[in-house]
Computed example of a mutant assay.
Amino acid sequence: MAHAAAHLKKARELEHPPEYIALQKARERRRRQRERAERKRQSDSNTSFLRAARAGNLDKVLEFLKGGVDISTCNQVLH
C-alpha cells in the first residue's frame, strides 16, 4: 500500500513543472516560519504575563489581559 501511495505521489509531482513545485515548497516554508514566529510570540507574552502575575504587578497583568493574553495560561508556580 505504501509503495502505491509513493508511486501516486511521484506521478503527481511529474505533472507539475519544477518552478511550480519550487514555489509550493517556498510557500510551505514561509507558512511554517510564520507559525513558529507566532508560537514564539505567544510563548513570550505568556511568560511575561506569568512573571507579572507572580510579582503581583496588577497593572501589567491587566494590560496583558486587555491585549488578549490567554487567561488559561498556567504554570506550577501559580497553582
Score class of each variant (00 low, 15 high):
K10V: 11
A37D: 10
V77D: 09
A52N: 08
Q24V: 06
R31E: 01
S43Q: 12
L58Q: 05
R32M: 10
K25S: 04
E63S: 12
A37P: 00
E38W: 00
A5V: 14
T47S: 08
D59C: 07
K10M: 14
G56I: 04
R54H: 02
T47I: 04
T73A: 15
T47F: 07
R51P: 00
A37Q: 14
S48H: 06
D59A: 14
S45R: 13
K60V: 11
R41T: 06
A55F: 01
S48T: 03
T47V: 04
G67K: 03
R12T: 09
R31C: 01
R39F: 05
E63K: 09
R32T: 06
H3L: 13
K9H: 14
R32K: 11
E19Q: 09
E19H: 06
R12E: 14
T47M: 05
L65M: 11
K66C: 11
G56A: 09
P18Y: 00
K40G: 00
I21M: 03
A55W: 00
C74P: 00
R32I: 07
P17R: 15
A5G: 15
I21V: 10
V69D: 09
S43F: 06
Q76V: 12
Q33Y: 00
H79Y: 04
A37R: 11
V69H: 06
L58W: 03
E63N: 05
L14P: 01
L23P: 00
A52W: 03
V69G: 09
L78R: 08
M1S: 15
N57A: 10
E13N: 12
L14M: 15
N46M: 01
A5L: 15
D59L: 07
L50V: 15
A26R: 04
P18Q: 10
K25P: 02
D70H: 04
H7S: 12
A52P: 03
E15N: 02
A22K: 11
V69L: 04
A37N: 12
E38K: 07
E38T: 06
M1G: 15
V69E: 07
T47Q: 09
A2H: 12
F64N: 06
P18K: 12
Q42L: 13
R29Y: 07
Q76A: 12
K60P: 00
K25M: 07
E28P: 00
L23Y: 11
Q42E: 14
Q76T: 08
H3C: 08
A26Y: 01
R31V: 00
E15W: 07
H7N: 10
H7K: 13
L62Q: 13
A11N: 10
S48W: 03
R54F: 06
R41W: 04
A11T: 12
E15M: 13
R54N: 07
A37H: 03
A55L: 08
A6P: 03
L8G: 15
R39E: 10
R51N: 10
R39W: 04
K40N: 08
L23H: 08
L78A: 08
D44A: 00
H16W: 04
L62N: 14
T73M: 04
A5T: 11
A26S: 09
K60A: 11
P17M: 13
S72G: 01
A53F: 09
A2G: 15
P17L: 14
A5K: 11
A2C: 10
I71E: 08
R32D: 07
L14T: 11
A11M: 12
A55Q: 11
P17H: 13
